[in-house]
């Protein structure tokens, strides 16, 4: 070999996406997530029961008119699981992107300005030092428990995660030849960030995005489980799990629905993250 290096084989965007989403794990994960989200959104079509309608038939086992049985107030569990998934759709579709965009923006700022960097990074340290649940308790104490608290918490948890990755991307890209080359051509700082630095650093953010989606499901579950999340009588996977614990010996099937749903979602998002990571990050 002469001094000429092998091409780093950085393929353009499209081919990489195909490689990322084309891995078996990403495909399986996407399929599972897609099916479950569809089920959540199409809940009225999949069940005739109102998830909040009470009846005299409490704690029935699976079978009869109730696919998964009923809870302590005689509400249909299959309907409650389906409608519960809707909460997670909301959390993942609304809260995660908000946190991601905010975190990325702050991270980019850190990469650009030294003092902003010092201050924000310490703030991120503090946020990362607490578990999501403690942040959730704090948020719930301030704005009161409920779905808004869950959304705020999920967004908040994601800010430092994306902030760190975006900052690293900016710092590593900043001194690369093609960024310096773009500067010498006269490209200004904003365009430099948006056209050159972020597109080349986006891989890590995408993988973090998939991981954050699973984290969001987990945080919603945990908050509702301890009673500071979605409020009764509205169903959510976390609150279903919490109430099922009290009736494990009367109706063991009570816990199965929400448990399977949460597990599937978390695992599926992790699979997507895994596949994306293999396709995008490994060069």
């Amino acid at each position: 070999m002469t001094a000429v290096m092998e091409a780093p084989a950085a393929a353009p965007r499209r081919g990489q996406w195909r490689r990322g989403f084309g891995t078996p794990s990403a495909r399986i994960g996407l399929a599972v997530v897609g099916l479950m989200y569809l089920a959540g959104l199409a809940a009225p079509l999949l069940t005739g029961h109102d998830p909040e309608a009470q009846s005299a038939h409490a704690l029935l086992g699976p079978g009869g008119g109730h696919l998964l049985g009923t809870d302590e107030y005689g509400r249909d569990l299959w309907a409650r699981v389906l409608y519960g998934i809707r909460v997670d759709v909301l959390v993942t579709v609304v809260a995660v992107p908000i946190g991601a965009v905010l975190g990325t923006a702050l991270g980019v700022l850190c990469g650009v300005h030294r003092w902003v960097d010092v201050v924000l990074q310490r703030a991120f340290d503090v946020m990362l030092a607490f578990t999501a649940l403690i942040l959730g308790v704090t948020v719930a104490a301030v704005i009161g428990p409920g779905l808004p608290a869950v959304l705020v918490t999920v967004a908040g948890v994601n800010v430092p995660l994306f902030g760190r990755i975006a900052r690293d991307a900016v710092l590593t890209q900043r001194d690369l030849d093609y960024v310096v080359a773009a500067r010498t051509v006269g490209v200004g700082p904003v365009r430099l960030l948006l056209r050159h630095i972020l597109p080349n650093g986006v891989d890590g953010l995408v993988v973090q995005g998939a991981l954050s989606l699973s984290l969001a499901v987990f945080v919603e579950g945990a908050m509702s489980f301890v009673g500071i999340g979605v409020r009764a009588p509205a169903p959510s996977l976390g609150s279903l799990l919490r109430s099922s614990v009290n009736f494990l010996h009367q109706n063991p099937a009570y816990a199965v629905g929400p448990m399977v749903a949460v597990t599937l979602l978390v695992v599926a998002f992790n699979l997507v993250a895994d596949g994306l990571g293999k396709g995008l990050l490994k060069r």
Partner: peptide, 22 residues
């Protein structure tokens, strides 16, 4: 900015000086 119109640069490594995404 004005001088950037008069002076340009060509780098050593043509593999790293072109943005791979463009």
């Amino acid at each position: 900015r004005r001088i950037r119109g008069d002076v340009q640069m060509v780098f050593q490594d043509p593999y790293s000086s072109l943005d791979p995404r463009m």
